[in-house]
Design a protein around this nucleic acid. Structure first.
Length: 257
DNA sequence: ATGGCTACGATCCGTAGA
């Protein structure tokens, strides 16, 4: 089984690239973020023709998340339990016995801003939500754009980014609180090349300079982490014309998963 | 130098992303 996550930054603009990538990478389950479109305009039929069912929580202009799966999805749910949120950032489904939670965590804009405060509140609500889901689903994955670079090695220039949004100590604590529920960052279960990132700024030739951050992750409960055989970031789509600013992350599992 | 791209929905610029 292959599970992927990709912030596509507009499903409408990226659909041709997404279809090509699905055909090449052949993931079984894909979490998508930043659809930037409402459900009525979501390209459900095109993805069905490519072999994927969709569970969609759309929103015009901002946010919007979806889960794609080759096999059926059960127990669909949206949002975070007990957390009222106009911003559509979370969708969950069970696929082949695995609980998949697709997340588009808030950006936070700047340390000390209202959006930063919202980001920290949102992470605490997510932590509580995931704790509840873990009690019901031993095999659980939280995949998406976390908008946090967990460690300095996930940052191209830690000195320049020190204390900034995405790397600040409160954000990293909020991210680590998810791991403290018993989750593992699948990327760090394996040897990885130095300076591997999942996002690069569109400006200043960010990708060419590899000026990036690793802010997209796939977190796994212990039983799934035990069955995980690989995790990598696929930079190929970021090299195309008119790319998303994020690259997909893919985790692979043995048949036991 | 606090910008620099990109997407969106609205106009012929503002908001947001990270």
């Amino acid at each position: 089984m292959k599970l992927a996550t990709w912030n596509v930054n507009s499903i409408k603009v990226r659909l041709p690239q997404l279809l090509d990538w699905l055909a090449a990478a052949r993931p079984d389950v894909v979490c998508l973020q930043e659809l930037k479109t409402e459900e009525a305009k979501y390209p459900r039929a095109e993805l069905e023709a490519a072999g994927y069912q969709s569970a969609v929580l759309g929103q015009k202009t901002y946010n919007g998340v979806a889960i794609l799966a080759r096999s059926g999805m059960q127990d669909l749910s949206t949002g975070i339990t007990g957390f009222e949120d106009e911003q559509r950032r979370v969708i969950s489904a069970t696929v082949d016995g695995v609980r998949v939670i697709c997340v588009y965590c808030p950006n936070g804009q700047a340390v000390g801003s209202d959006k930063y405060a919202y980001k920290l509140r949102w992470f605490e609500a997510l932590r509580r939500h995931v704790a509840g889901e873990l009690r019901r689903h031993p095999k659980l994955a939280v995949a998406g754009d976390f908008n946090v670079a967990p460690e300095d090695r996930d940052v191209h220039d830690p000195k320049a980014w020190e204390g900034q949004v995405h790397v600040s100590a409160p954000e990293r604590s909020a991210w680590r609180a998810l791991l403290e529920l018993g989750l593992k960052d699948s990327f760090r279960l394996f040897e990885q090349p130095e300076k591997t990132y999942s996002w690069w700024d569109y400006r200043m030739l960010g990708f060419r300079r590899n000026a990036g951050l690793r802010i997209d992750q796939i977190l796994l409960s212990a039983p799934l982490a035990g069955a995980c055989t690989a995790c990598s970031i696929d930079k190929a789509p970021r090299k195309l014309e008119r790319p998303s600013d994020h690259a997909p992350v893919i985790a692979e599992f043995s048949a036991a998963a």
